[in-house]
Every structure is written in structure tokens, then in C-alpha cells.
Design a binder for these strands. Sequence first.
DNA 1: GTCTATACAGGGATAGAC
DNA 2: GTCTATCCCTGTATAGAC
Lengths: 189, 189
Amino acid sequence: MLTPAANTREKLMRAAMDIVAADGFPAATTASIAERVGMAEGTLYRHFKSKDDLLIETYRRLKAEVFEAIQARTQAAAGLQGRFRALWLGMYATYAADMQAFAFGQRFGESALSKTEGGTAHERLMGHVKQLIGDGQAEGLIKPAPAEILSAFFFPPLVSMLKQGAQGREWSQAEIELAIDSAWASWSV
Amino acid sequence: MLTPAANTREKLMRAAMDIVAADGFPAATTASIAERVGMAEGTLYRHFKSKDDLLIETYRRLKAEVFEAIQARTQAAAGLQGRFRALWLGMYATYAADMQAFAFGQRFGESALSKTEGGTAHERLMGHVKQLIGDGQAEGLIKPAPAEILSAFFFPPLVSMLKQGAQGREWSQAEIELAIDSAWASWSV
DNA sequence: GTCTATACAGGGATAGAC
DNA sequence: GTCTATCCCTGTATAGAC
């Protein structure tokens, strides 16, 4: 949810997202969500079929917006290492711009609900990374390791840095570049 | 919990661990835990003060055993890159030997309970890694980046591979070595 | 659309008999 | 030590008035 909430429906989604991001899924009760928006608990059901429906809808919106934002940031990149850098930075910057969305996405992906709502944002981005790996290996720039291993050195460190960012650690531009260099070093032949 | 359960108390801990590992924290109700052990729900409270107590105790045991197992595997390593390899492999092999313990540890670390029980297994191992980084930087073998960045290329990819392992992806010895090489490449100057 | 009141279920925990 | 019965609270969801 990178855009501000307009109507009541979106206010509810934003409230749910903030609560989950801050205190986890168990804290996101119908009571706490309604209270944060400033409305009665029962009214929530005029806007969503159920609590799960609200949460799943929130995640769908988030996923779509994040994917589009990253897409936009990554479009122009040229050259293999340039594409690599753009993708890493695009993902980082997009999530860093809305840490609540990031934390919500993380928690949603580990919740039981993610079984219902198949296809996490992560999985969707994986396609881009796999493409990159295939191209790089064809050019002989990236080591011939399985994509499952190489991607373990792309997303997880990035997520780790975002998590640390959520806990107050600020990253300088130089440090971000250092991280991208390290990620690339783990991939290159 | 790398050792088999002997008494009732340990059976309860193992049951809780398995349920959390398989279906997450919400699934670990007093009813489901007791049922899995084959005893009445109320009896659980003769062995533990509360459900949280059971869960926290389970995690403490796990953490202590895991730490010791890794310690044992890492002891003999010599040379900086040898220590690096031994630590990576030691952590991997220890958790791979008990994936239930691994999954439980992951989920516990993200639960609200981990705020109560300060100091996750991860944090404790971090000390070893920081030591390694300091030594390596002094020798000029490891790039002069902040430890927070370098460790993001140590634990998270390792955890990612263990998670994939939990979902059925089998890693060959050669693939493990490939992963260690990639991790080292991300660190070296 | 929103509120108040309420039904209903599930989960944690205790009491007391055996 | 273990079981059965039960209490209480919390959370989801619905009904019906405004």
C-alpha cells in the first residue's frame, strides 16, 4: 500500500497492515483494527466478508503495487551487471519507502493465509532473477550454479538489510553499494 | 532437541516443537499438544506452569543443544577460510540433522515470545561470525565492510537453503560446497 | 453506513476425584 | 501423575435499530 488511503475500505486495509507490521498477526484482531480506524467492530463486515478476506485483499493490493513499482524502477537498466544492480536497488528502494508494507508482506508470507492466497510477491520477483541468472550464465559472467543457490544470495541478504533498517540501522549510499558488490561477487565466475 | 525424548516433560516439548514446525504457532494449542502426546489437556499443567512456559523452555533447550553441537563441529578448524567453512558447514549440518528443530527455531524467533526469552540462537552464533570477520579483516583477507552487511551474506543464504531443504529440495555435497564458495566470495577482498 | 448488543466457538487454565 | 469437568476470557461474526 504505497498510496495513501482514500475511502473507508482502504483505511481498514492500512490499519490492518500497520498493526500486523508493528505487532504481528495475533495482534490484528477485528477489535484492534476497527479501533484504529475509529469505527465499530461490526462495521468492518460491511466492507469485507471476513477478517481473512480483509487481510488477503490487503496483501493482493500490496503485491500488485510493489511489483509495479519495482518494474518501473528496473525498466531502463542496460547490461547484465546494470540489470542486476537495478533489480537489487529497485527492490530495496521500493520496500524501504514503505517499511510497514515490507513488514506486513514478510509476516503474511509466513502466515497460514499465504497458503490460501497462492503466489507471494517474492515468488513473482523470482522470475526476474531467474531470467537474469540464465542470461548471465549464457554470457559466461555468472557461475554455473543452480538458480536456487544463487537466488539465496540475492533476496535473503537484501531482506536482512531491510529488516535491520526496520530496527533503526540506517544504511548510507556507500553501504548499499557495498552490499550490491558483495551480492554480485557471490554470483560472478 | 537433538536428543530423543525420555520423560513426559520432554515428550511434551517435542510434541510442541513438531506441531509448531509443521503448522505454525497458532496450531500449537494445549489441546493439540496434549493429544499428540496422548494425555489429557489438564495434565500438561503438572509439567509446565503455562503454555508459554512450555514453549519458552523448549526453545531454551533447543538453543543450548544447537549451540553446543555447532561448537563441537567447529572446534578443530584451522586457518581463516577453514574456520569460515567449518562454521557454515557446522551450522548447516546441525540444523539439517533436525529440521523440526530448525523450523521451530525460525518460528519462535518471529513470535512475540522471543521478546520474553531474550537472545535467540542466531544472536548467540553471531558472536562467532563477528570474531571471524574481525580476524579476517585484520589479516586483509576479508573486505572492510560493516559486520552487519557481511553477516547478511552468511546466515540468511544458509537459512534459505535450509528452508528449501525443509520443502524437499535435496542438496548434494557439491552444491553445498558451491554455496560456501559463494558466501566466501561475498566476503573476500 | 454505522452503531449496539449479542450469539457462538475456541483456547488457556484450575478444581477435585482417582 | 493423570483424567474429567468446568470456568472464563477473547475473538469472530451476525442481527437489528438508527
